[in-house]
Every structure is written in C-alpha cells, then in structure tokens.
C-alpha cells in the first residue's frame, strides 16, 4: 500500500474515531467524553491554523495564542454585552456565533497582518521571539483590562447560539465544532494543493530559488500568516464557548507552545496532523493527568522521542513521508 493511500486511510480513521467516540458517549449519556472530544476538535482547528504558517510556510510562530485569545475575547465580550444589554463600540452585543466568528476572524486576521508585516522580515530565532513578544503584549493587555475581568477572566453565562442547534447540549455543540473542523481541514487541503500552497511551500524549502523564479516571498508568507491567524482566531471563539470562560491564560505563551506541540506530535504540514496531535495531547492530559500531576513530564518525554525518532509525528510514523505529486 503506498503512503498516500495509507495517509488517507489514517485520516479517515481519525475523522471517524473523533465522530464515533462522542456518538457512543452521547448514546451512553457520558457528557464528559463529549466535552473532551469537543476540546480535541477545537484545539485541532487552532492547530490547523498554525499548520498553515508552520507546516506549509515554515514560519515558527511562537505567538499563535494571541489569535486564539482574540477569538476568545470577541466571543466573551459579545456575549457579555448581549447579556447585560449594553453596547460595545456603539454596536449591540450578540450571542450569535456566526457574527462572532466573522468578527473574531476579521480581528485576528488584521492583527496577524500587522504582526506578520513587522516580523516576517526576520527569520529563525528572531521571528520566534518577535511573535512571542506580540503575544505577550496581548497577554498583559488583557491582564490589565479591568472592564473585562482582568486577570480573573470573563465568564460567558450562556453559551452563544447557532441557528438550528441547541448549543447548550454537549452533543449538538460537538457537532458544530466537528463540522467547523472538517471545513477547516478542507480549506487547508485546498490551499495546500492550489498554486498558493505550492508557492508557500517552495518558499519554505528554498526562498532564494523561489525568488529567482519570480515568486516574492514576503507577500506570499504574509497572506499565509494572515490565513493562519484567522483560523486560530475562529478556534478561540469556539474554545471560549466550550469552557464558557475566557481569560488571559488563553493568550499565555504556554498556549502558543501547546499548539506547536500538537503539530509536532501529529505531523508538521500533514493534513490530519493537528487532529492526531490534539487527540494525543488531550488524551495524555486526561489519562496521565488522572494518575499524576506531573503528566507533562511524560508528555515531554514523548515529545522528545517524536523529535528524535519520528520527525513526521504520528502521521509520519504510520504513513511515511508526505507525497507531493
């Protein structure tokens, strides 16, 4: 069986399992499992976003928690004002997910554009540090913003709504997150296979060569970075609705690190790498977190093993190197 077919089978298996397990939990009335699956789906969406920048474009952003946090705060602030019936910036609050998502993506995309424009002139460790610095600025800004809870965070009393669904029910909210994940994955696959993806990957492999055939690296990378931030921002809005709470911790550098860890565990640049990685991370948190509070030590060892012996992550381990045609 060739690697491409293996990867598609593995992808189908992952997509099927992420659907079947919560389906079983719903039938067996185990809402906690459904919530775990929802968390995996939402983390995976955030990591799909980062996978565009990191996996396709080779841009190691150590500040993607910034966009996750922006999405989270958009959901939180909109719900807060809708609940209190007060306006925000002259607009009414809303408890509808669709406009919340649109604003979250717009804002995180804009900010990614600014951060990208300022940081994409650098590379390597400097790029990592600048993206981290911007995320830390966001972190400390929300920390010192008393109007929306400051360091205590902002609760969302009622989960925001989606037409035709009762999002308060774990199963229906899971379906929503799962649907968004599938759409996001489809978008990633399209981008990767299209001319834009070809240009972005060429720049990652060999910027000088790309320039010599007439591809300007800066513009392509900037657009990739913006798309990446937008998807992670969307995940942030969903994440806030899952926990019904948003706090500066969503923008903490450890969150940025977690997203990178997810991608490395799953497989950098692989379509279902974020899904596999998020499942491993959440799985570790639940199973080893129940046994010992030092579960991150074991996660660290696994990460070390992946980096040393399985550079392609879980997907690479099973399906081999990626095929590009």
């Amino acid at each position: 069986m060739d690697n491409t077919r293996k990867e598609w089978l593995l992808n189908a298996l992952l997509a099927g399992a992420l659907f079947a397990v919560p389906l079983w939990a719903w039938l067996a009335n185990e809402p906690f499992i459904i919530t775990l699956a929802t968390r995996i789906a939402i983390l995976a969406i955030a990591a799909v976003g980062l996978n565009i920048a990191l996996g396709l474009g080779g841009m190691v952003s150590f500040g993607h928690a910034l966009y996750l946090g922006i999405g989270g705060y958009v959901a939180g602030i909109a719900a807060h004002h809708a609940f209190n019936g007060t306006p925000v910036l002259g607009l009414p609050g809303t408890n509808q997910m669709l406009p919340i998502w649109a604003i979250a993506m717009l804002l995180s995309g804009t900010l990614a554009g600014i951060v990208g424009a300022l940081s994409l002139r650098t590379s390597g460790i400097f790029f990592i540090m600048i993206t981290l610095a911007f995320a830390q600025m966001g972190f400390f800004f929300t920390l010192s913003w008393p109007a929306y809870g400051g360091e205590d965070g902002l609760p969302i009393f009622l989960r925001n709504q989606f037409p035709g669904l009762n999002t308060a029910r774990p199963w229906e909210f899971f379906l929503l997150a799962y649907g968004v994940l599938m759409l996001t994955l489809a978008a990633f696959a399209l981008i990767r296979a299209a001319r834009f993806g070809a240009a972005l990957m060429a720049i990652r492999h060999n910027p000088d060569r790309a320039a010599a055939i007439g591809i300007s690296p800066f513009g392509i990378k900037l657009v990739g970075f913006i798309l990446s931030g937008m998807i992670t921002g969307l995940a942030g809005a969903l994440m806030a609705d899952l926990t019904r709470f948003v706090s500066p911790a969503m923008m903490a550098w450890t969150m940025s690190g977690e997203l990178i860890v997810i991608i490395i565990l799953g497989g950098v640049g692989r379509l279902f790498g974020p899904v596999a990685g998020a499942a491993i991370l959440v799985g570790f948190e639940v199973f080893f977190g129940g046994l010992t509070e030092h579960w991150k030590l074991w996660l660290g060892l696994v990460l070390l093993a992946v980096v040393l012996f399985a550079r392609g992550g879980l997907i690479g381990l099973i399906a081999g190197r990626g095929q590009h045609g």
Partner: peptide, 22 residues
C-alpha cells in the same frame, strides 16, 4: 512539479487558493 512552479511564477498567478495545481 518543480517546473510547474516556475510556470506558475512566470504567469504571476500565485494567489490562487482553490484549484488544485495537479
């Protein structure tokens, strides 16, 4: 695919997101 990339670059159409190059 390497040569396709060069053709694509010459045509100047790298900002296309939907149609698979293959």
């Amino acid at each position: 695919r390497n040569v396709m990339l060069a053709v694509q670059a010459r045509q100047g159409h790298s900002y296309r997101f939907l149609r698979p190059v293959m």
